[in-house]
Design a protein around this nucleic acid. Structure first.
Length: 924
RNA sequence: GCCCGGAUGGCGGAAUCGGUAGACGCGCCGGUCUCAAACACCGGUGGGGCGACCCAUCCCGGUUCGAUCCCGGGUCCGGGUACCA
């Protein structure tokens, strides 16, 4: 029998499907293990060779855990809502559901060819009503909850209403968008609409008038993590800031718990750090600066309370509500003009344009510590969304304030001993304070750290400020003015938002005649006929964002067909949290924050039993493309090989990597590739046309996309799986280079040749030799350890060594070869399954086998090698009995024929012997 | 700017605890097979030197008997993030 990957792989894939080999169910007699991939958005382009990298890794780990006796949950599904399908729908009129279904089928087809051990009976799609029912359900729960600062968890909004009835807003234990002040009597006297507005201020899912990232080109708002450098991540369109009334999720209420939760999970430090930065906790103080000759008081946030003596001006964000209140009549015109000039700039323009700009309001604030009057300015370098939208400026010790002060010629007072502020500010938080004393407070001579603490204490005692922790993390904007997303289970009655009853879910996405906004500028759902609730009240026109459906999908896999609950208590208690989660780093600040928030919310409600969703997380690296180039001689149709190109004036042209092999161009295929190259001439090196290469993003326009289907067709899924893992460390980004794939393909053939020689079966029942057992157990030990470390590339190297050794030993022992197959099965499931049956003679699948334990006894060496060094330089090797005492090893080292040459007249000072490793002789 | 990674042969990468640097694979060179080529198989392959040996893990310094690994300083590359007070 010859190794025939096509026949073997299709046969076993069919068998696994027919037998439902990988279907899993709750089995309390076994330990569970939940392995999850970040589910894909099924794009129209299909999978390229980079996509399955993480899936292969998780599949290897799942199969490994299964062989170790765990009950493994390893599901897959699709994140089916998204902008590309809708953009395509706008262009073609094709319903996004149709495109999405086609894309999903294609993905499934491609995934199936790679031989994954998914339990497809648990497949989910976020656009299925049975699925998004639970997304809508969670939204209703969030609408019905507030975040209680006393119990530090989400609580039913009714509890807050009861509190208002009793105490009004006094000492209100709820996280709110803004501080509201009312008595119990005032609360009771409020109209229904007024009460609803008050409660909206505290709900976890709330309607809020917030500054949003508005993308005019996409016609929708975007979340912070959907925007990078002022443009949308999908499409790269400009994004501007706009005030809009939108649904939001009070993620910020969970900031501290999201931060603390990171301590409990097994993620990489860099990912945790990224999340910490995104949450951006900063401890500081809120301080009050009264406005001179006015009743207004400016509230500011600072982390440098110690620098109050150096405050020489105040700055307001252009959007700050204070601007209007403090501007003097004389400055009104200048301020209005400045604000107008800022408004028509997009966020991107504001970022690119780093020129200092601002305007004086005409008003002065009183420094509460020095009593001095300081001018109040307006500038766009102060952000409205962070802190209070107003700052105290300390130009000596903040580079932004410094630039502003220099530009407008404002005073700069140094506060730290030895700080030279003539050229730049001194931003470091260290040194001894100077110029910082008043009758009541003296900071001079103190270290910055101590001065901050002393000032904080002073201002809170004096009532001119309070200690405050600020977070950079903002609430998530949850409305999208789009069609292809989950409809909100919300209707409006008398201008008040109400949620549907849970029994009315799912609220299905209606049909529309076009996927564009209406003539009046309403979102696409405005086109739907009868878009009203059962009593005829209008339903919400926005839909939910992409992250809505992906925030709790891992619960649904535990119990995917349950129509009574997101997940049954029984299923959740058994599967609990994801034990291993594999996906890309691009989700560090989006999906991985939202999921953790969503999970904690459900945990607060008692709906789920774990408060962190993902115990261990691995970020697989990106697979980049490796592009090939041909070099056309200018103004000709002649192409010159890479090594000779410098002799001509050439233009590099991307060439399809699929007609290049080992950087050698298939010249005939090139002529047929495109009409303009039909008559191409080549200047070759020894008849070969060598292409240049570069590492770039894998994309159609670079002609460097490698399709996994082509690799599977040519080499087989097992080769693809092994090669993807062999390319390098899982977490590292690396270019795809098909050049090396023959190596792992050869390995599989060598493996095959251990079992068959032509049609002859070689496997017999001979007893394994000591060498056989040593080769095998060395492998088992190495692979068992490597899999736990996700070091799959080194595992594969170990397989290659083992197979080479067993071949050299002419090992045909059934015992040895069958264990070799089990260990290899997670990596190359098809060929191992085939040999397991045809050559070893088993009738059950290899998936039911047991992972072999390695036996240290077989690995013991009778002799060990020592490297002998003189003064640290390794000179020669000796071999000694494994259990030889130190003295004997020393003696052997010194008796070696080369020893005298190295010692030559020197005297030995000491000898260091590291057992089994090295003998270092120190001499002088 | 700040935070986090990384730098090892012609290439991808190994060295998992501070102990023989370069595992494994690609490529390349040589050989076997073939009329020939491809495939396959076998052998060699960091650089220098006839050799004993010498030089090599981005650069400079330190700790150590011994450093790819630990510490200090620097260069370059990649990723994240940003007027966050």
């Amino acid at each position: 029998m010859e190794y025939n990957h096509r026949e073997i792989e299709s046969r076993w894939q069919q068998r696994w499907r027919d037998d439902q080999t990988y279907k899993c169910d709750i089995d309390k007699s076994k330990k569970k293990f939940y392995v999850l991939d970040m589910f894909p958005y099924p794009s129209g382009a299909g999978l390229h060779v980079g996509h399955p990298l993480g899936y292969i890794a998780s599949d290897i780990y799942s199969r490994f855990k299964r062989l170790q006796g765990y009950n493994v949950l390893h599901p897959m599904g699709y994140d089916a809502y998204g902008l590309p399908a809708e953009q395509y729908a706008i262009q073609t009129g094709q319903h996004p559901e149709v495109t999405t279904r086609i894309n999903i089928d294609r993905y499934r087809n491609q995934l199936d060819k790679i031989g994954f051990s998914y339990d497809w009976s648990r497949e989910i799609k976020t656009c299925d009503p049975e699925y998004y029912k639970w997304t809508q359900w969670a939204f209703i729960k969030m609408f019905g909850s507030y975040y209680d600062t006393k119990t530090d968890k989400a609580e039913p909004i009714e509890k807050l209403e009861a509190y208002f009835n009793e105490h009004g807003s006094f000492d209100c234990p709820a996280e709110g968008s803004k501080e509201l002040i009312f008595t119990a009597d005032e609360w009771k006297a409020m109209s229904e609409k007024e009460k609803s507005d008050v409660l909206m201020n505290y709900r976890i899912a709330y309607l809020g008038n917030t500054m949003v990232n508005w993308c005019p080109k996409l016609g929708t708002v975007l979340a912070n993590d959907e925007v990078s450098e002022g443009v949308s991540i999908r499409g790269g369109y400009p994004v501007e800031q706009k005030m809009m009334y939108q649904w939001c999720l009070r993620v910020s209420a969970y900031a501290q718990r999201l931060l603390e939760g990171l301590e409990k999970v097994d993620w990489t430090d860099s990912l945790k750090e990224t999340q910490r930065n995104w949450i951006g906790r900063s401890e500081g103080a809120e301080m009050l600066f009264p406005v001179a000759d006015s009743d207004e008081v400016l509230e500011i946030f600072t982390t440098r309370a110690d620098t109050v003596f150096g405050v020489t001006f105040m700055v307001l964000a252009p959007e700050s509500i204070y601007v209007d209140k403090v501007t003097t009549p004389g400055q009104r015109k200048a301020v209005d003009e400045y604000i107008k000039s800022i408004k028509h700039k997009t966020e991107r323009e504001r970022m690119i344009d780093k020129k200092v700009s601002g305007v004086f309001t005409g008003a002065y604030a009183v420094n509460p510590l020095t009593g001095k009057n300081i001018p109040i300015w307006v500038s766009d370098y102060v952000l409205a969304g962070y802190g209070t939208g107003a700052i105290m400026a300390v130009p000596a010790h903040d580079s932004r304030d410094y630039a502003f002060a220099k530009h407008f010629d404002l005073p700069i007072i140094p506060l730290i001993e030895g700080a030279d502020v003539s050229e730049e500010s001194f931003d470091a938080k260290s040194g001894k304070m100077i110029n910082s004393a008043s009758a009541e407070l003296d900071l001079n001579g103190l270290e910055v750290k101590d001065a901050i603490a002393k000032t904080k204490k002073f201002i809170s005692e004096k009532g001119i400020g309070k200690v405050k922790v600020n977070y950079r993390l903002r609430d998530a904007i949850f409305s999208r003015q789009r069609y292809w997303g989950e409809p909100f289970p919300v209707y409006y009655k008398d201008g008040i938002a109400h949620v549907l009853d849970e029994s009315e879910l799912p609220l299905q996405l209606p049909e529309v005649d076009a996927y564009l906004p209406t003539e009046t500028g309403e979102p696409p759902l405005g086109r739907a006929k009868n878009w009203v609730n059962k009593d005829g009240y209008p339903l919400e026109l926005c839909t939910m964002p992409g992250f809505a459906g992906s925030s709790a999908y891992y619960f649904r896999y535990m119990d995917p067909r349950n129509d009574k609950a997101l997940v049954s208590k029984e299923a959740n208690d058994y599967w609990r949290a994801v034990d291993l989660y594999i996906g890309g780093t691009e989700h560090a600040t989006g999906h991985l924050i939202y999921s953790r928030f969503w999970n904690k919310f459900l945990y607060d409600l008692g709906e789920v039993c774990e408060d962190e969703p993902f115990r261990k997380l691995i970020n697989q690296g990106m697979i980049q493309g490796r592009s090939n180039f041909v070099y056309r001689i200018k103004d000709t149709n002649t192409f010159v090989s890479y090594g000779l190109k410098d002799e001509y004036e050439v233009t590099p042209i991307h060439v399809d990597v699929n007609i290049v092999s080992n950087d050698i161009l298939d010249q005939e295929a090139f002529r047929n590739w495109r009409p303009e190259f039909k008559d191409a001439e080549f200047i070759t090196e020894d008849g070969k046309y060598i292409c240049g290469y570069a590492v770039e993003k894998m994309s159609k326009s670079m002609f460097n996309v490698v399709n996994p289907d082509d690799i599977v067709e040519r080499y087989g899924a097992d080769t693809l799986r092994l090669y993807e893992m062999f390319l390098g460390p899982l977490e590292q980004s690396k270019p795809w280079d098909t050049n090396g794939i023959d190596g792992v393909n050869r390995f599989i053939k060598k493996l095959w040749n251990l079992f068959y020689k032509g049609d002859q079966l070689l496997v017999d029942d001979s007893e394994p030799t000591a060498d056989n057992l040593k080769s095998l157990h060395k492998l088992i030990k190495k692979v068992t350890g490597d899999i736990e470390l996700f070091s799959f590339n080194t595992s594969i190297a170990a397989f290659m060594i083992c197979v080479n050794e067993l071949a050299a030993q002419k090992c045909h022992s059934r015992k040895v070869l069958s264990e070799l197959l089990i260990v290899l099965a997670p990596f190359a499931p098809h060929v191992t399954e085939e040999l397991w049956h045809s050559a070893i003679g088993n009738t059950t699948t290899i998936c039911d086998a047991e992972w072999p334990e390695f036996n240290e006894d077989y690995l013991k060496e009778s002799t060990v090698n020592y490297a002998v060094s003189f003064n640290g330089k390794t000179r020669y090797n000796i071999s000694a009995a494994a259990d030889a005492p130190k003295e004997e090893v020393e003696k052997l080292a010194l008796e070696h024929e080369a020893a005298s040459r190295w010692l030559d007249g020197k005297t030995v000072r000491k000898i260091i012997v590291v057992p089994g490793k090295i003998v270092n002789i120190v001499a002088n």
